[in-house]
Simulated assay, not measured.
Amino acid sequence: MSATVSAYLARPGRPAVVAPTLAELTGPRTGIVELPVRLMWCGERAFDLADPDELLWMYENVLRETSRVDDLRELIHAGTLRRVWPLLNLPRGVRLAWEARHRSLRAA
């Protein structure tokens, strides 16, 4: 199954990428996650998911920067995404794209 690339933009020239289903988001819920350079190009790319601020920062970066649904599947966990969705600071295009595809996030 391929990603849904929406008409919404993550930033100018980059469409927001949305997972077709939330069920396929099986990323880690605990531990330290190191993002690939393509998603986080500054020096510190490791995030401790036990730290609420680091978890939010990691999710914001992945949702904003990815161009591949595999990144979403590997790094984002559906239950965690639902829980933190209202707290995420996302570009308007990313939020609208995800909420258009996954109405349950809108209610979160």
Rank of each mutant, 00 (worst) to 15 (best):
S2C: 03
A3Y: 07
T4I: 15
T4Y: 14
T4L: 13
V5E: 13
V5T: 15
S6T: 15
A7V: 12
Y8G: 01
L9F: 08
R11N: 05
G13N: 10
G13S: 09
G13T: 07
R14I: 07
R14K: 12
R14N: 05
P15S: 14
V17P: 02
P20E: 15
L22E: 01
L22P: 02
L25C: 06
T26K: 15
G27N: 13
P28Y: 09
P28D: 13
R29S: 12
R29C: 11
T30Y: 11
G31E: 08
G31P: 13
I32R: 14
I32T: 12
V33T: 12
V33G: 01
P36T: 05
R38C: 08
R38S: 13
L39N: 07
L39F: 06
M40K: 11
W41T: 08
W41D: 14
C42W: 13
G43L: 07
G43H: 10
E44L: 05
A46E: 08
F47H: 09
F47D: 08
L49N: 11
L49P: 02
A50S: 15
A50I: 00
A50C: 03
D51G: 03
D51N: 14
E54R: 08
L55M: 11
L56Y: 01
L56A: 12
W57P: 00
W57N: 03
W57A: 10
Y59E: 06
Y59N: 12
E60V: 02
V62P: 03
T66Q: 05
S67V: 10
V69W: 02
V69S: 12
V69K: 09
D71G: 05
L72P: 00
L72F: 01
L72G: 01
E74L: 13
E74Y: 12
H77L: 03
A78T: 06
A78E: 12
A78K: 11
G79F: 12
G79Y: 10
G79A: 05
L81I: 07
L81P: 00
R82S: 04
R82H: 06
R83Q: 13
V84Q: 02
V84D: 03
W85M: 04
P86K: 06
P86R: 04
N89H: 08
G93I: 01
G93D: 00
V94T: 06
V94Q: 01
V94A: 02
V94G: 00
R95C: 13
R95K: 14
A97I: 10
A97Q: 02
A97R: 05
W98N: 08
W98C: 09
E99H: 05
E99L: 02
A100R: 07
R101D: 07
R101W: 04
R103C: 09
S104W: 02
S104L: 05
S104V: 15
